[in-house]
Computed example of a mutant assay.
Amino acid sequence: MAVEDERSSQDGGEALRVRLITIDEDTADQRIDNYLLRVLKGVPKTRIYRIVRKGEVRVNKKRITADYRLQPGDVVRIPPVRVAEANAPARPADSVIAQLEKAVLYEDDQLLIINKPSGLAVHGGSGLSYGAIEALRQLRPENRTLELVHRLDRDTSGCLVIAKRRSMLRHLHNQLQQKGKVEKLYHALVVGKWPARKQLVNAPLLKNVLQSGERMVRVHVDGKKSRTAFRVLDRFPNMTLVEAYPITGRTHQIRVHCLHAGHAIAGDEKYGMDEDNQSQRQFGLKRLFLHAASIQFELPDGRLLKVEAPLPDELLEVLSVLKGE
């Protein structure tokens, strides 16, 4: 990304600059609004949409709309904007930074894969000042284009893929859109005896947003087609450890499909029964027992990459208690 020209103006004693930025291959194929949100960190979203709507942002000297997709070679004019008007992003706690430093499972010049801890959202928003991606950007300031490839629920731990380059982000998004190209495997401890013959849950899922802003998902005939394959890994008194393979990728898919099958995931405070969650505390479970155990996909050069995330210690301890060790 090359800055071709800058022109200064004065605003309240501060020198502000018009920036002319040439879009390269790595930056291309994203919407202009998303690009500006990243480049103008700290500027309110409403302000960004306003300068686009008023024509202050131009591409190749022409007005554009917020959904315009950038192309290689485009020259973007970014007007003077006082970033100082917005609050500076919150700095993640040192303990979170330390956790993420130890959580790296795989890294090269285009990819970063971490074993995301439970309780950490993948991004800030909805009352959260930061998430994993904001913390990683502060941990790796030299990687200016870190972007989430996919998401995990806040309470789910395990493999989380972050792209360092736009080209890799586009490649992996293309893989995710093709059936069977990306294989994600999860481990879940569920309530009751999961039948060995129950190997597929095929139930459409409908997403609702409550007045509080909370997202809830339920099985409904008007929902999107959703399928999850299951395999029993181990059995305990009134509990079963299963492997879940989401064939489709819907919000809360594994959690709601487990519930639909009659076996809610242990520690699920959103979809499980309060009395079950309370009783599970006796063997030390204090979180959702859902873990993204592995992910496999094809790299741009055709090689398959498979990365595995070991179960966190707190979940291993729960299994030890259940086994009577």
Rank of each mutant, 00 (worst) to 15 (best):
Q71E: 12
A88N: 08
E85T: 00
G131L: 00
P80H: 00
I97T: 06
N202A: 12
E298P: 04
D11K: 13
D153V: 00
K225P: 06
P117N: 02
H220C: 05
A229H: 15
S320C: 03
V242E: 09
V76H: 14
V307Y: 03
Q211W: 04
H220L: 06
Y49A: 07
N115F: 13
H220M: 08
L172E: 10
C159Q: 05
K179H: 14
A203G: 09
P237M: 12
G42R: 02
N115Q: 09
N202V: 00
V191P: 03
R218C: 01
D234W: 01
R227W: 06
R303C: 02
R38A: 14
H291L: 05
K224Q: 11
E214Y: 07
D11M: 11
I97F: 10
N34R: 02
Q110K: 09
K41S: 09
A163T: 09
D11Y: 12
N174C: 08
L148E: 14
G42W: 04
R63G: 02
F297T: 03
V3M: 14
Y35Q: 09
L319H: 09
L136S: 07
C159T: 04
R82C: 05
L259A: 12
S8T: 08
L311A: 03
A292G: 01
A2D: 15
L37S: 04
P204W: 01
K207G: 01
A244Q: 04
V39L: 15
R235A: 15
N60R: 11
D222G: 00
E308F: 00
S294R: 09
S167R: 07
A132M: 13
D313W: 00
R77Y: 00
G55Y: 11
P79H: 04
V307D: 06
G119E: 15
N115M: 08
N87H: 12
S8D: 10
G119W: 04
S294H: 04
S320H: 12
V59I: 12
L316D: 01
D94T: 00
Q296Y: 07
R38S: 10
P312Y: 03
G213A: 01
E314A: 01
Q30W: 10
E314N: 05
G42E: 06
R19M: 05
L105T: 01
A121T: 03
T22E: 15
R140W: 01
R255C: 05
P44E: 14
R137G: 13
R137A: 04
K270Q: 09
L169C: 08
Y49I: 10
D222A: 03
R166W: 06
V161P: 02
D313S: 05
T240P: 14
T248V: 02
E183F: 05
M273P: 11
G73M: 12
L120K: 07
L322W: 04
S95E: 09
Q177V: 02
N34P: 05
L315S: 05
V219D: 13
D301K: 11
E101Y: 02
T156D: 14
T248M: 06
K54W: 07
L290Y: 03
V321S: 09
V321R: 14
L148I: 06
V149N: 11
N277R: 12
